[in-house]
Design a protein around this nucleic acid. Structure first.
Lengths: 250, 250
DNA sequence: GGCGTAAATTAACCTGTGTCATCACGATTG
DNA sequence: CAATCGTGATGACACAGGTTAATTTACGCC
């Protein structure tokens, strides 16, 4: 069940058994990738997309001075570059952050799904739109929050996403990021990230180590980051039992 | 021909005549809206989407202090909240900036298109992914550019988008935005936007008045904003003659 | 088990942008 | 015609975060 985490707990897009089966058969290959490896380069034509099974990946845009802005961090269950199916050419690079296991899905398979299963097709569309919603939350973060707020927002968001993937208990989770990753995510320098992390530690909101993030006060952390998880469309209550609640999406 | 500008000049998604016709018949109503009017509120369930015909619209997220971050500016030809079709509930508000004319498309029509015309369906998907690509460019802008760069980037982007819509000659275009709109777009204060605009004027890069934007030196403006238009997927060369170049998108 | 390198930490100083306040101008309205 | 309001312009000052550089810690590797 490679697609187990895909769209899990997402409101209104529960995958039917046959849809999930179809996605499973669409997978061409399972690959393990080393950490810090580029897998997609901006401008190249693509004929496959990547479903992330284990580990963390990022998408980023380079600037003229060799710096980069991360535009997305992906957690297990994310269909990292599904948008490459309609777009064919991406405007950014994609890379692993940690070691990662991925499932490769050829676009020809997605093409077939488009014709055969319009409902599944729309769920795939939905999944790319959640990525866009996350982009918007990141815009809010960069445009309206100060340094502490940005870090608090990112950690709160990541916590919720990992809870949905079953990889956080709401207080502690493993995350393979280092401080300069946070800097590239939050539009800050790594020096300042370090100051912010110290502050969060001293105020007993959260402790960030590259191997482990521990949230001491989730409510206050979310408040500092003005974090409202609605944009993630996650409903942790939603029963995972496949047959319990087959709700139509229209 | 209300859909005339939709996906115009977009690389790889030329609309076939019958697809365009189908979209035209999907339109339920044409409306004129006054400036500075909210049309969608975050959290409400939607059953229709808006194709912008004339004027400018915005999407934004409010913060706790009554400030807002714009996450998108829409120009004629944009399917402003098409993503509400799969998502149903939006994470942000949508409003007019100037007076605007819009075409209302019921989701039931889009639903039908999903089943009947997978190819058109994928072009609609594509269109929402361009919005996501623009989100990413905005993330780059906020995360990696200083104040002058951000404004230069936004003006360069808007110029290209309006050229594609036939509303800029590459040097001059009308834009109904005021300085505090730019502030909400660029994550700056209106005081500082004012300083930046003066600098751009003095350096003879561009002159911004709420009624008219005049770019004196497009190349240098783009350089200051590190603007690379690839993410817009616009190809102005692409023949507009409907029959000349019916290229498949796969 | 020491070595080498990447990551984290901290300090001193600097600067870009925010804050606050005031004024000018034009459009609208009573 | 005065009053009001939205918008733009500008100056003085404050401060969040950048820059630079040095030091410490953690960790894989021979």
């Amino acid at each position: 069940m490679f697609t187990e985490r895909f769209l899990r707990h997402r409101r209104g897009v529960h995958l039917e058994i046959e849809e999930r089966a179809r996605l499973e058969t669409a997978i061409g290959e399972i690959k393990t990738l080393p950490p810090r490896t580029n897998v997609v380069v901006a401008g190249e034509e693509l004929s496959q997309s990547i479903l992330l099974l284990e580990g963390f990946m990022s998408r980023y845009i380079d600037d003229r001075n060799g710096l980069r802005q991360l535009v997305a961090v992906h957690v297990p269950g994310d269909f990292v570059d599904l948008h490459a199916f309609p777009l064919k050419i991406l405007d950014h690079d994609v890379a692993t952050m940690t070691a990662a296991t991925v499932a490769i899905v050829p676009h020809s398979e997605l093409e077939a799904i488009t014709h055969d299963l319009p409902a599944l097709s729309r769920k795939l569309w939905f999944s790319t739109l959640i990525d866009a919603a996350i982009h918007r939350a990141w815009l809010f973060r960069l445009g309206r929050l100060d340094a502490v707020g940005r870090v608090a927002h990112f950690i709160s968001e990541t916590n919720v996403r990992l809870m949905s993937a079953g990889l956080s208990d709401g207080r502690r989770f493993a995350l393979g990021l280092i401080q300069s990753d946070l800097a590239e995510i939050c539009g800050l320098t790594n020096v300042h990230i370090n100051r912010v992390l110290r502050q969060l530690r001293e105020e007993r909101l959260c402790v960030f180590r590259s191997s482990l993030v521990e949230i001491l006060n989730p409510e206050k952390l979310a408040a500092v980051g003005q974090f409202n998880p609605a944009y993630l469309y996650i409903d942790l209550q939603s029963a995972e039992a496949p047959s319990s609640c087959p709700r139509p999406i229209t």
